[in-house]
């Protein structure tokens, strides 16, 4: 098993954090992981992305030329990555911001209206973690229990409330996709 995922969106939408959380959860579950964020001039001017590989074997390259999954948070990301996803791969779309749809017919598409969903959260934020919840539900790459543990390790240091709101966001996304 070797699964590659690209997370992409505007800088500030938390795509690097999504990659970090997924890779950490994979690590905790004893899998091999790599996480390669975009950097430098590439991220100036808006679009950031992050590639995560989760594997039962040693990972040769952290670069994903043909990812199984793409998690796309804005329209430029859809334009850039829709044709890179493997045939039969899966795309998660932030349907609140992305009006277009992939023209390919060989992809599984999940639409997640993040802006509407986060209105159900107390602080109206955490769209990236909502999306991550939806992503782990359908990809099954890591369990929600592991991801909750990662959220706890990552966010409860400063303020326990931050962890709790992230946990709510995760479960909101997890339960949104049936």
């Amino acid at each position: 098993m070797l699964i590659k995922t690209i997370f992409s969106g505007f800088g500030g939408q938390g795509v690097i954090m999504m990659g970090y959380l997924l890779a950490t959860a994979g690590m905790i579950e004893g899998k091999n992981v790599t996480c390669l964020p975009s950097y430098g001039a590439e991220v100036r001017g808006g679009t950031a992305n992050c590639t995560v590989v989760v594997s039962s074997e040693e990972i040769a390259s952290p670069v994903a030329s043909e990812p199984e999954y793409a998690v796309l948070m804005n329209n430029p990301s859809l334009i850039r990555f829709q044709n890179q996803v493997q045939s039969g791969g899966t795309v998660f779309l932030n349907s609140s911001l992305i009006e277009d749809r992939p023209i390919r017919g060989d992809l599984v598409i999940y639409e997640v209206p993040l802006n509407d969903l986060i209105k159900q959260l107390s602080e109206n934020r955490g769209a990236n973690v909502v999306m991550l919840g939806a992503f782990i539900k359908k990809s099954g790459l890591v369990t929600p229990e592991t991801m909750i543990r990662v959220l706890k390790d990552t966010f409860s240091g400063k303020n326990p409330a931050v962890f709790k709101s992230n946990r709510s966001a995760l479960m909101l996304g997890y339960e949104y996709l049936k």
Partner: peptide, 8 residues
């Protein structure tokens, strides 16, 4: 790549 990538 080595500088930027994250690994356990």
């Amino acid at each position: 790549m080595l500088g930027q990538m994250m690994e356990p």
